[in-house]
Design a protein around this nucleic acid. Structure first.
Length: 351
DNA sequence: TCTGGGGTCCTAGGACCC
DNA sequence: TCTGGGGTCCTAGGACCC
C-alpha cells in the first residue's frame, strides 16, 4: 500500500493564494499574532531551517525567525484544499483511500510497480491541486507510513520486511509512529534504545511495563509488522470536544460560569449536527500554569440540551475555587451506531 | 521557550455485584 | 470472623497523532 503525505501542507496552501510568499519563511499559527498564547500549526521549510516546528509556542517561533511571515490559521481553506487532494487520490485507478487527516492518506492498490504508481499519484495531485506530496510504499501500514518520511520532500521511498531493519534498525525507538518521548524513555529504562532492539524483544516481556495490549503492540511496531489492510469505511466520530485557552487566566467564578456555558453550547451544536445521543461528558481544566485535571461523567442517553447543560454545570462545580484557569475543554462522547467499526486501525490518534 | 485544538485508545484503581 | 475470585462499570489520567 501507499501512504501519501502533502509537503508542508498548510504553508503550501497559503502560498497558493499568495504566490508572492513563495520561498519565504512562513509560520502559520493561532490568529497570526505572536504576542498571543498560541502555537505553530505548520512552518514552511524556509522557517524550519531556523529550528521552528509544529507545536512550538508562536512567541518563541517569532523570536527565532524575525523575518517570518506569520499567518492566522484558516481551517476552511485547508479543509477545502484537503478535499481536492482526497478527490484526486480517489480518482486513481483501483485505489482504496483511507484518510488520516487533512494532509495524508493510505491508498490500497494492486499494481506490479508501486513506484510507477506513486509517481502517477504525485503527478495527479500536483496537476489537480498544485500541491506537492511525498509517497511511502510499504507491505504494512506502519512501513508505508514510516517510508514517507524518507521520501520528503516530493519523493518516493519503499519500506518492506526486506529492508525495514537495514533502514530503521539503528534508529531510536522515538522515530516509530506511535512511540513518543514517554514510551521511548520507558523502553530505554528496559535497555531498549533502538528499533532493532525493540524488534528482537519477546512481546510478552513488555506486558509487565505496558499492559496486555500495548506491550505486544510496541514489539510488533519495532518489527514494522501489523495491519496491511486499507479501510475506506467512513469514519464515525466517537465524540466532539471544544477547548479554549484564554489569553488572560480566568479568576472570577462568574467568568468561569460564563465560559463553561459558552463551551457547552458549542459542543452541543457539534453533537446536534450528528444527531446521536450524548452518553458521556468530560470537562478538562488547566489550572495555571500547567496543571491539568479532568472531570468525567457518564450520562443516560440524551439529546436534550438542558440535560447536557445541567450535567456540564455539575461537573463545573468541581472546579477548584480561587485558582487561576488557563484552559477549559469539554468533550461529549456519543453513542456509537451498532455497526460502527472499532479498534481496526493500528494506532491511536486523531483519525 | 512555555506550551492550540481536534481527535483516539489504553490502563489502573475503586465501587459494586454475585 | 475473615475474606475468594470473577465480572462490569465508572472515573481519572496518560500517551500519542495531526
Amino acid at each position: 500500500m501507499l501512504h501519501v503525505d502533502l509537503d508542508q501542507f498548510i504553508a503550501a496552501v497559503e502560498v497558493l493564494r499568495r504566490p508572492e510568499l513563495a520561498g519565504k519563511p512562513i509560520i502559520v499559527g493561532g490568529r497570526g499574532d505572536p504576542t498571543e498564547r498560541a502555537v505553530v500549526s505548520t512552518a514552511s521549510y524556509e522557517a524550519r531551517a531556523f529550528g521552528v516546528g509544529s507545536g512550538m509556542p508562536l512567541r518563541v517561533a517569532a523570536r527565532k525567525v524575525p523575518d517570518a511571515v506569520i499567518l492566522p490559521v484558516d481551517q476552511e481553506a485547508y479543509l477545502a484544499a484537503s478535499e481536492r487532494v482526497m478527490a484526486a487520490l480517489r480518482a486513481q485507478p483501483g485505489a482504496t483511500v483511507q484518510v488520516l487527516g487533512w494532509d495524508e492518506a493510505f491508498m490500497g492498490i494492486e499494481t506490479g510497480c508501486p513506484e510507477a504508481y506513486a509517481l502517477q499519484v504525485q503527478a495527479a495531485v500536483l496537476e489537480q491541486t498544485k500541491l506537492h506530496c511525498s509517497v511511502g510504499i510499504g507491505d504494512t501500514l506502519v512501513r508505508a507510513k514510516v517510508a514517507t518520511g524518507f521520501g520528503k520532500p516530493a519523493g518516493v521511498f519503499r519500506l518492506t520486511a526486506g529492508n525495514w531493519l537495514d533502514v530503521m534498525g539503528s534508529r531510536p525507538t522515538r522515530d516509530l509512529w506511535g512511540v513518543g518521548t514517554k514510551v521511548s524513555g520507558r523502553l530505554a529504562n528496559l535497555g531498549i534504545n533502538t528499533v532493532a532492539e525493540l524488534a528482537a524483544i519477546d512481546p510478552q516481556d513488555l506486558v509487565p511495563e505496558f499492559g496486555p495490549k500495548m506491550g505486544p503492540w510496541y514489539a510488533e511496531l519495532g518489527r514494522g509488522d501489523g495491519a496491511s489492510v486499507v479501510d475506506d469505511t467512513p469514519w464515525v466520530a466517537r465524540g466532539h470536544s471544544r477547548e479554549t485557552t484564554y489569553q488572560r487566566d480566568l479568576t472570577e467564578p462568574a467568568q468561569v460560569h460564563a465560559a463553561v456555558r459558552e463551551l457547552a453550547s458549542h459542543v452541543l451544536e457539534d453533537v446536534a449536527a450528528e444527531g446521536r445521543p450524548v452518553v458521556g461528558l468530560t470537562l478538562k481544566v488547566r489550572y495555571a500554569p500547567f496543571f491539568t485535571k479532568t472531570h468525567a461523567k457518564k450520562i443516560p442517553e440524551t439529546f436534550d440540551r438542558n440535560e447536557v447543560l445541567a450535567r456540564t454545570l455539575e461537573l463545573a462545580a468541581e472546579i477548584e475555587a480561587g485558582r487561576a484557569i488557563r484552559l477549559l475543554g469539554l468533550r461529549a462522547e456519543m453513542a456509537m451506531p451498532e455497526d460502527a467499526r472499532k479498534g481496526h486501525t493500528p494506532t491511536r490518534g486523531g483519525w
